[in-house]
Write a protein that binds this DNA or RNA. Sequence first.
DNA 1: TGGTATGATTTCGT
DNA 2: ACGAAATCATACCA
Length: 344
Amino acid sequence: MDDQTRMLTGLTGLGGLAQADVGDPDSVRKQQSLGQPQQDIGDILQQIMAITDESLDEAQARKHALNCHRMKPALFSVLCEIKEKTVLSIRGVQEEDPPDPQIMRLDNMLLAEGVSGPEKGGGSAAAAAAAAAAGGSPTDSSIEHSDYRAKLAQIRQIYHSELEKYEQACSEFTNHVMNLLREQSRTRPISPKEIERMVAIIHRKFSSIQMQLKQSTCEAVMILRSRFLDCQVRKRRNFNKQATEVLNEYFYSHLSNPYPSEEAKEELAKKCAITVSQVSNWFGNKRIRYKKNIGKFQEEANLYAVKTAVDAANVSAQASQANSPATPNSGGYPAPCYTPDGRL
DNA sequence: TGGTATGATTTCGT
DNA sequence: ACGAAATCATACCA
């Protein structure tokens, strides 16, 4: 059954309502005793209209009488339906709001930073990752680390207490409004659906306030994190042995042209668990320092030359010595010579 | 504790 | 934007 027909059938029970003698209260009251439905409804409407002219006590009594009237539920549902058709159906279209992407982003971020979600010092994971990326072991930055965790815990605590406050306020307000509407629904055409809608509106309002809270919490975490990272930058840490080995291997095996491409840098960065710009810095430093004092790097150069030669031998052995590998050194940076004592 | 090593930053040229 | 060179700041070690 579509809305139109439902509405029409809903109104059939009111046949003759327009023609009912509603203009004259006395005639309506007279007709009430006849027990005809249309007369009952006309009577109820008339009484409702008359309530405003009565004293408060009288009105209360009348209200109670109306509430108990046997036609009240029918009239109530009809009025609800009419109201639904006229006003709320317009708004009903955009009722189903999808989850706000902004709030989802904030939620995800707060979860990732360990502010929301289960308590386990989760935020330190990011800090540990930052420390590891800077080349240090996560344990030796314990001072800043604990400081960071303490600050994060503080933010977490404030966030949760504020959130709780908002939630409490929201449920209190919702209950209040619901009670009010339920009470009013005794005399006004307020359907449960409408109450539901009202609750949804309140929740939306409160969630926008919550979003502000989430936003400012995110900002606080970001500021804290950038300070922590600044701290990490100032406190320089040497790369670990394995990372230096990987970088040196590349440098000495590409001594003729020790300029890794963007892809090579990314590859090296991944291997060494450092950033691409750190790889660039390392190569910049290495080139200039090697060039300045080749003698000093002789031993190191020989070491890595032997290493790569062994590796190459292994590879070529596996490849059934098909053709000799191209030597990388052809110009560019001076190649090391292989004297046993490391002199040039 | 001072010297050296080393990662990061700055300045300048292309 | 990238690299060379100089310089800074800190880690590391004897």
